[in-house]
Design a protein around this nucleic acid. Structure first.
Lengths: 193, 193
DNA sequence: CGATTTTTTGAATCATATCAACGTACGTGG
DNA sequence: CCACGTACGTTGATATGATTCAAAAAATCG
């Protein structure tokens, strides 16, 4: 079955049929994104969200000094994009690019609005997605403000084991807000236990 | 007009009438919470969310060493509670208590479900609230992983000026994940500019 | 295989935490 | 109105965890 079909029905209580899904699917535009290619560039407006069928992506902010800070990591069955820019059509503070070659489905804000009103299941999915997102970012903040580098890495491994072997350490370090050198030492220390 | 009435219509596009609001209001239970009194205790299940009419509250996590980490601050026209525990009836990792004497309106999960299905405006409000929350926590994470203590305090003042004179510095320091001593020094430095 | 990316490691440095002491402000009860 | 306690803020000295930088080692990829 199509990953997006499963994804929607996974979240919804009023399941969609395969016929429904054909209509839903027609609102999405398939695209291949090569490694390092951008879906969104900092300063631009996020015109579409991407549902990842295959591959891995990252969202990052480049500061005044040119340093990239990884804000989110994404793999299959995740949505990639900048919500603020997408919803309000404001210039994004983030870039999104492919870390691996990707296959994604793109959807515009207008399509989302249409799908939301036509398909209760789609609406429900978005709701739960938002809820889940809220909860997980909340946890991430708790970890970020209260933990040491070591604790934060442990929390990360607990919450996102599927990222650990999918992204290199320096990317994960940036995601955690610590340096790659520190992460290397933290991991070494962890292994000795 | 009632603050909650304004709040809902502020977010909704299909406004509610005053008659609608009388029904909506009937689902809420008014309560006064004295300073330092808990709405939710860590380990308990969050049975209700509080809409704050008057006063200020905080949410915090107490770690193994007994140190409190402030996770959220709330004032008038904010919702206080732990979403994860509220939605999934799991023990909460957080406590919520009153920092000032408060007047709140309590609502249960069942009432929220009923209100959501009966009043599209209420549903819409919750959606936008979630969206707004997602965006602001996202910004907070960006600030937390990429900035120095000084930058993080500046971001905080930018985003939440109304908190600055409402909560003491040691509370704000904890919210930012820095020590009260460091915050004191950061502020001193800031004044000299 | 060579080229590139990623990881490791040590040494020096820096930012922040910690601790303790003191100063200040505020509110309450006498 | 004063005296006291409590909470809050500031400050210096010191400790510590994390960063930075540079270099080398290891892994990955075409």
């Amino acid at each position: 079955m199509h990953p997006l079909f499963n994804y929607i029905n996974n979240y919804a209580t009023n399941l969609i049929t395969e016929d429904d899904f054909k209509i839903i699917e027609s609102y999405f535009v398939p695209k291949k994104i090569k490694k390092r290619q951008c879906l969104l560039e900092q300063g631009a407006i996020c015109k579409q969200f991407a549902f990842i069928i295959k591959g891995a992506m990252r969202k990052y902010h480049t500061d005044q000094k040119g340093v990239e800070h990884i804000v989110n990591l994404y793999i299959e069955n995740w949505w990639a994009g900048d919500r603020e820019s997408f919803s309000f059509s404001t210039p994004s503070a983030y870039s999104v690019d492919a870390w691996e070659d990707c296959e994604v489905l793109l959807v515009t804000r207008e399509s989302v609005a249409k799908l939301t009103s036509d398909f209760p299941a789609f609406n429900e999915m978005l709701l739960k997605l938002d809820e889940r997102n809220n909860i997980s970012t909340h946890r991430r903040i708790t970890s970020a403000i209260s933990g040491t580098a070591e604790q934060r890495y442990e929390d990360f491994v607990d919450c996102h084991p599927y990222f650990v072997n999918r992204f290199p350490q320096h990317i994960i370090a940036s995601y955690l807000g610590i340096s790659k050198d520190t992460l290397s030492r933290v991991r070494k220390k962890g292994l000795q236990k």
